[in-house]
């Protein structure tokens, strides 16, 4: 049985009614325009360090030791143990061997700094999501806790009809949107635990995110599925879409009184 695309209207009405000090006027089911980009990416995944690999990495970074024999003497273990640990880290791309000894790669340094053993996996297929207003990436929690519609039409079993916010995808996704996402320090917040580091991206395709816009006597509220209550992120996206479209989106779609 497939997951429903959104909460029924009555559930949203119930939740809004439970919010103190909120006086709703209209409930408007809307489809927020978004972008999805399917990519084939080399992703970086984090694992926990074990014991020898962690300390060997730290020794290479902090102690100025680089030879297998001197590292073995430093740790008080047999040289083959160091050699095999180095071989394992080499297979992960964390270090390389040179005539002067072992040296950490950039991935090894990054892993040591973050305390997580990163590993690169090429050829992973991912879908990255961006908002339809300014092309900013969508937080991962919203990516996974939402139903993304391929077309601008949705009618729930209770008869609620969602209508799209008009005219905001005409400008297309900014060409550097994926690049900007990859260069962010917090990419994992948008891509999930498999962080893309290199991608081959296809053409972006429009997708639609069903939300409820709740007009109130003061600030409007937006209800998605990622957050139990009003969703400030989706409110921000909604406002961006309203600004971009230049239309009064509250006049779109079905309106339901409180």
């Amino acid at each position: 049985m497939s997951e429903p695309a959104h909460l029924p209207m009555r559930e949203v009405v119930r939740r809004v009614g439970a919010l103190p000090g909120v006086r709703p006027r209209h409930f408007t089911p809307l489809l927020l325009p978004m972008w999805a980009v399917d990519v084939v990416a080399t992703v970086r995944e984090a694992q926990s360090y074990e014991v020898f690999d962690r300390y060997l990495t730290r020794a290479l970074a902090e102690s100025g030791l680089s030879g297998v024999a001197e590292l073995a003497a430093f740790f008080g273990v047999e040289p083959p143990l160091v050699d095999r640990t180095a071989r394992f880290l080499e297979s992960l791309g964390h270090l390389r061997r040179s005539p002067s000894g072992l040296t950490l790669t950039e991935l090894g340094h990054r892993s040591m700094t973050d305390g997580r053993r990163y590993r690169l996996f090429p050829g992973r297929r991912l879908t990255l999501h961006f908002d339809g207003a300014v092309g900013d990436p969508v937080p991962y929690a919203h990516v996974v806790h939402a139903v993304w519609l391929p077309g601008p039409a949705l009618t729930l079993p209770d008869g609620t009809v969602f209508t799209p916010v008009p005219g905001t995808l005409g400008g297309g996704l900014p060409a550097d949107a994926v690049g900007r996402l990859l260069s962010r320090a917090d990419t994992a917040g948008f891509s999930g635990p498999a962080v893309p580091v290199e991608v081959a991206a296809s053409e972006p395709r429009p997708v639609w995110l069903p939300v409820y816009l709740v007009e109130c006597e003061d600030e409007p509220l937006v209800f998605g599925w990622a957050v139990d209550g009003p969703d400030p992120y989706l409110l921000q996206v909604y406002r961006g879409c309203a600004r971009e479209s230049g239309t009064d989106v509250t006049q779109c779609g079905d309106h339901h009184g409180p």
Binding site: E50, F75, T85, F88
Partner: peptide, 26 residues
């Protein structure tokens, strides 16, 4: 080196099952 070695020895002084997987690997 001194700090790393102290931590290493403290780690080695604690009984641990975390070594098992690595010992099997190496």
């Amino acid at each position: 080196r001194a700090g790393l070695l102290r931590e290493w020895r403290q780690r080695a002084a604690r009984p641990t099952r975390q070594l098992h997987a690595e010992l099997l690997r190496y």
